[in-house]
């Protein structure tokens, strides 16, 4: 009962965003089991058939069901986006909080490295990394996760560092210092919980961009390997048919757009929710 009321008192954007994300997570989890067709099966209908009741998004060049493929692609896209953003958050938060807490020369060095990483356009950085990783890793979802982590790390770290500097100036941190507690203990117990609100919103923002990045990498042919259903890859491989059979591109495009909108609504609501609780003091 209390949970129900708390849920309805959250911002509407937060509720709608959460609902959309929930649908995509469900698709990623059980999509392949309830689909009308096997996403890899060729010739489920005539090639390039338009949308109909049996093929909601129509079929592609090989007669594969675009709807089934778009839903199945959620597995890779959702998982890779979340893992990438989470990786960037954890690594970035750790580095940023540490750097902002200890200050001094180590902080300076870390910040310069950070700036160097940020100054490289992220797409170029991503392509560079995938090239360096070599053909063995390229095409594996884990490689995309790794790239995402490295792209987000410096951006999150910067955010975390400024939060850490602000919190470290407060008296309760001074008290902990006067107890001679270890820096990592102080970071974990005093800094991290107080930076959690900021970092949570930061995570949501990053997660909101992640699917676009995954799609872009896929579109450029640097994402996952071709037979795997993935939105960016599907748009890329069907782009020549855009004029003849727009539904082949529209299906995955629609999914990608919807997911990003859901994430952004969620983020906006979350930011307001966190801001509100910070103001009223409710934990």
């Amino acid at each position: 009962m209390r949970w129900w009321r708390a849920w309805w008192s959250t911002p509407a954007t937060f509720r709608i965003g959460t609902a959309i994300i929930a649908v995509f997570v469900a698709m990623a989890a059980i999509g392949t089991y309830v689909l009308p067709y096997d996403p890899a099966q060729i010739g489920t209908g005539k090639p390039l058939e338009g949308p109909s009741l049996s093929h909601l998004f129509g079929t592609d060049q090989l007669g594969r069901d675009v709807f089934s493929r778009s839903v199945a692609a959620a597995r890779v896209d959702v998982l890779v986006s979340f893992l990438g953003a989470a990786g960037g958050l954890v690594a970035g938060a750790f580095l940023g909080l540490f750097s902002g807490f200890i200050r001094g020369p180590i902080d300076e060095i870390l910040q310069r490295l950070n700036e160097a990483l940020i100054s490289i356009p992220f797409l170029i950085l991503g392509l560079l990394l995938l090239t360096v990783l070599g053909p063995y890793f390229r095409g594996e979802p884990i490689a995309v996760v790794f790239v995402l982590t490295l792209i987000y790390l410096p951006r999150v770290a910067r955010m975390a560092r400024s939060a850490a500097i602000e919190i470290a100036a407060r008296d309760f941190v001074t008290i902990a210092r006067l107890r001679k507690q270890r820096p990592f203990t102080i970071i974990w117990r005093e800094l991290a919980p107080n930076a959690a609100g900021v970092l949570l919103v930061e995570f949501a923002i990053r997660a909101g961009y992640a699917p676009i990045l995954v799609g872009t990498l896929g579109f450029l042919g640097f994402g996952v390997k071709p037979p795997t259903p993935e939105w960016g890859l599907m748009i890329s491989s069907n782009r020549n048919l855009m004029v003849v059979a727009p539904h082949t591109v529209l299906g995955p495009g629609l999914m990608l757009t919807l997911f990003v909108i859901g994430l952004n609504l969620f983020t906006e609501g979350l930011a307001r929710l966190v801001g509100r609780s910070a103001r009223t003091g409710a934990a």
């Binding site: 008296d171 309760f172 001074t174 008290i175 107890r179 001679k180 919980p193 107080n194 934990a283």
Partner: peptide, 29 residues
């Protein structure tokens, strides 16, 4: 030598329960 600060809003970690706040110095000392 123990320090007590001017502003209690800033000297208590807002994300920690009072019991935990009091427990920390005990753990250390």
């Amino acid at each position: 030598i123990q320090y007590v600060f001017q502003n209690p809003d800033a000297s208590l970690n807002p994300r920690m329960r009072v019991g935990r706040i009091l427990e920390q110095p005990l753990e250390v000392f």
